[in-house]
């Protein structure tokens, strides 16, 4: 582990991995609770258009990705809130539009090709430039800030939207907040695991910690721990064995899930049966 820290690129990669492992499962807990586990995937597709737009306009792709994925997330949330049956079809259209838009725009960009997009689709954590680490740090702070300030309200909202409204909570604002926070998280995670695997970091650690916990807060905290173990563990092993870090991170997370599944069974079986009144 120590020799890893001698390399500049590895230090940057480790910081990015830690931040992503911390933030993605935290917001993911609310998305799983609201049964929006695939929202991250949707935003990921849309973010691809943002990346391509960055190359086309000569702007930093991270910034255009933030812009476009936030817009996409807001659009998805507005469609969802309408609550019509055509909602998931509309979402699907948005996803396809995101990929097609990305491929189209990148081909228009000078010297751009689908190969340019590959590092965003599958992640390229070992080539994260310093300024991207700063952007990732700021976004991660913003996401954690949102959770600290609005966590209690987001909990009520994700339990029952109607009760949230009858408690005087700003339901529309909070729903948009979850969507925008998810979009920011997707962009943070894009460099680490790639847009196609972003959702895995938002969902798998939550699914893992669910096997072992009984409460919402404990599930969220434990999933953040599992998230960091997966990203740092995956990154470290990819340093020693020549494999793409994004894929290893997700495999580590999934292995954790399988282990927790067995452990959870065992814990529940050995726990004394509660008496019901």
């Amino acid at each position: 582990m120590i020799e890893l820290l001698q390399f500049d690129f590895m230090r940057r990669a480790l910081i990015a991995a830690l931040l992503v492992g911390l933030v993605a499962p935290a917001i993911g807990t609310f998305m799983v609770q609201r049964r929006l586990a695939l929202l991250g995937d949707g935003i990921g597709h849309v973010a691809l258009t943002g990346v391509a737009l960055g190359f086309l306009t000569g702007t930093a792709p991270v910034l255009t990705a933030v812009l476009v994925s936030v817009l996409g997330a807001v659009a998805i949330e507005l469609v969802r809130a309408r609550g019509r049956t055509s909602g998931d079809v509309a979402l699907a259209l948005l996803f396809y539009g995101g990929i097609a838009g990305g491929v189209l725009l990148i081909s228009l960009a000078p010297g751009g090709s689908n190969a340019t997009l590959t590092s965003y689709l599958f992640g390229s954590i070992s080539s994260v430039p310093v300024e991207d680490v700063w952007v990732i740090g700021l976004l991660a702070a913003a996401v954690l800030g949102v959770l600290v300030v609005f966590g209690r309200e987001l909990y009520v909202l994700s339990q029952d939207e109607e009760v949230a409204r009858a408690s005087g909570l700003p339901v529309r604002f909070l729903s948009l907040l979850i969507a925008v926070t998810a979009a920011l998280t997707v962009v943070i995670a894009m460099r680490v695991v790639g847009l196609l695997l972003v959702s895995a970091l938002m969902v798998v650690p939550v699914a893992t910690s669910q096997q072992l916990t009984r409460g919402f807060t404990s599930t969220m905290l434990l999933s953040m721990l599992f998230g960091m173990i997966s990203t740092v563990g995956g990154l470290t092993s990819s340093f020693y064995v020549e494999v793409p870090p994004g894929a290893v991170i997700v495999i580590v997370a999934l292995t954790g899930f399988v282990l927790a599944l067995g452990l959870g069974r065992f814990i529940r079986r050995s726990r004394p049966q509660e008496s019901t009144p």
Binding site: T29, V32, Q33, R34, R35, A37, R152, E153, Y155, V156, S158, Q159, D160, E162, V163, A164, A166, S167, G168, L169, V206, Q210, T213, R214, G215, F216, T217, T219
Partner: peptide, 28 residues
């Protein structure tokens, strides 16, 4: 206002303790 909606089940995708739910009634 204290509203008790008509629901068939409580909770969602993530486990949550009874105390967490009840304590959230203080939100207003």
């Amino acid at each position: 206002i204290g509203y008790v909606p008509q629901r068939l089940s409580v909770g969602g995708g993530v486990p949550t303790t009874i105390r967490e739910i009840v304590a959230s009634g203080r939100i207003a």
